[in-house]
Design a protein around this nucleic acid. Structure first.
Lengths: 185, 185
DNA sequence: TCCTTCTATGCAACTCGTTGCATAAACAAG
DNA sequence: CTTGTTTATGCAACGAGTTGCATAGAAGGA
């Protein structure tokens, strides 16, 4: 199970509360791993009772108090162990592909709007990635000599950018195919 | 839940037994949706009791009997309903990206062999896809005028091919980055 | 003052997915 | 004639992930 490890990595990059983690899972970490706040709180609780992470109560003004988590030595060791063991190449779950093949038994043209919606979502995500890349890595305010952590974050982000570009090209191919098939079955 | 719908699509393309479906989920359908045989048998049982699919006992010689499933009218209606409702763009789960960002807190060079292993797996998958494309769509024995179903299967396969090519390029980028960082932390 | 929004944490119930195990028919190899 | 492989189906238990709901502090606006 990799949610544990995704959280450990995120906390090593920057300690934070469950709430902050759930926000990160809507952005940077969320680009390659998703989790809801319930999942995150549950895992944090388990990792804390296992001694993998430490809590610190932080009083805040202008907002409720929070629990700030940081990685303890056993957590770091667990992450290291996981990094050294092989994992299987990911298993895929691609609803849209199921729909496209299913369209053969329905009206292919009815899928066009759905595919266009997905295309828009991927366009937005690509723009978001590119803005992040400029801000953190290629823009004027970016570090001239990035450290290992920054270089690794950048290569992961480049993967996200490549994925979105590939997906946009493919969705154009899908749209062209659906339009060629026309409204009839 | 899309496993139901993936199975319905597969049974519409070709009726078959749970065992045959689980083989298909190791190949064509498995390119964009994974499932174990236990999952498949469980869902088949539920869909049968819901009247979505029909069973036919088939006696075979030289091997055990099987239950051949095919889609009934209510199943087809359920699929059609699903095709017409919008779905969220997929949520991502990419272990390797977690590992790459985690490598900043361990030894980046130790990941090289793991990444090379993944690269090999994707090379194999690409070769497999390309062989399938030649066999079914672009080779000499392929249909000159493919029907809607074949065109849709082909565009999904092209997506798989584009994905593998993009991934191979990215893994090369990852390898170059890891090698540049060197063995030290 | 009430209502909404944002921050912050959590329980309970459920469904989905994985792992381990079990059975059995048919054939092939030793 | 036992052992191993392929085809074929399934149960039980567990772990991961989702959905709905609940609470509460603090700020801002109607």
């Amino acid at each position: 199970m990799a949610l544990d490890h995704a959280i450990l990595v995120s906390l090593l990059e920057q300690p934070g509360s469950g709430y902050e983690l759930s926000r990160r899972f809507e952005r940077s970490i969320g680009y390659f791993w998703t989790a809801t706040h319930q999942q995150i709180y549950r895992v944090l609780k388990r990792m804390e009772s296992d001694g993998w992470i430490q809590v610190r109560e932080v009083s805040q003004q202008a907002r409720p108090d929070k629990k700030e988590y940081s990685v303890a030595a056993p957590g770091r060791a667990a992450l290291s162990r996981w990094l050294h063991e092989p994992i299987e190449p990911e298993s895929v779950r691609h609803d849209l592909a199921v729909k496209i093949r299913g369209a053969a038994f329905d009206d292919p043209a009815a899928l066009i709007r759905e595919v266009e919606r997905h295309r828009q979502a991927h366009t937005d995500r690509l723009a978001h990635y590119l803005a992040g890349e400029r801000r953190d890595f290629t823009g004027p305010g970016a570090p001239a000599a990035p450290d290992a952590g920054q270089q690794l974050q950048h290569v992961v982000l480049r993967g996200g950018i490549a994925y979105e570009r590939m997906t946009l090209d493919w969705l154009d191919d899908v749209l062209a195919t659906l339009r060629r098939l026309g409204p009839a079955r």
